[in-house]
Amino acid sequence: MRKEALIRWLFLGTAALSIVISALIVLTLARETFTFVTQVDLSSLWSEGWFPRRDLYDIRTLFAGSVLVTLVAMVVAAPLGMGAAVYLAEYARPRVRRALKPILEILAGIPSVVLGFFALTWISPEIVQRMNDEAALFNLMAAGIGVGLLVTPLVASIAEDAMKSVPTALREASYGMGARKVTTAVRVVIPASISGLVAAFILGISRAIGETMVVAIAAGASGGSLFSMNVFERGQTMTAAMASMAGGTDAVKGAGLTFQSLFFVGMMLFLLTLLLNMVAGRFVRRVRQKY
């Protein structure tokens, strides 16, 4: 019996480790963020751009970059992901579905550096620069499309799960009334699974905001960036700014509060994605309770 109790405590320890990790994340972020907020010249948080090495920490620049990239990403990922999900859940025959789902999962497994390279070498010249010939090679649009492609399988998979959890009886009732397939999908299945679809969308946004490497490779502006709302120009997001600050041959270099600003941006990113994930979790639970 002693052995049983020991094993139980061992497993409890491994489970409790996740709480320790969370606490450490919050503590390390909070400590340096506090130093940054108390020591930084507050006017530099609202200046012409994000240049940590010149003590200019305009957070609008990073927010604007993140919002633009996420917007472009969701314009790509929402129709593609939702469309693929409706097709897989409602239209595809079992055999087709069994063949297509693994391919989507493989797409989900492609490392983000690879999508970054693809965004820079193919999406930027072949799509973005054809849309607008004045676009720079490094631009936020290409990065956004790359992030969108990365997020598509995630959106598709969560949305498909939600639609699959709608009971068949609802579909049969709809067919029994003489409704067409498209009517059943649009008027019955989609409204019935709407919470799950919203959750898929929000989790997609959260993932897009947190994506680093695609933007770091394809959006350029590694040294810093002026405030800009032009998606065809170079730019920086919260995540890419962190990667470029930490890049180079030594861990973190720079003058003044550069090091602390890294944690400050990290803290904002952490809180933002946590909020989005919690909201999405609430929507997912609503689907589970319903059926």
């Binding site: 969370s22 994340i25 390390t28 972020l29 959260s206 680093t212 990113l269 994605t273 946590l274 994930n277």
Partner: peptide, 27 residues
């Protein structure tokens, strides 16, 4: 319940933030 929710939230933390954790703790 708390551990469960906590793990789900950890899974959604962006990977750069884990980089900051690794830098502060391990490095």
């Amino acid at each position: 319940r708390f551990i469960d929710v906590n793990i789900r939230n950890l899974a959604g933390v962006p990977s750069v933030v884990y980089g900051l954790l690794g830098f502060a703790i391990f490095v």
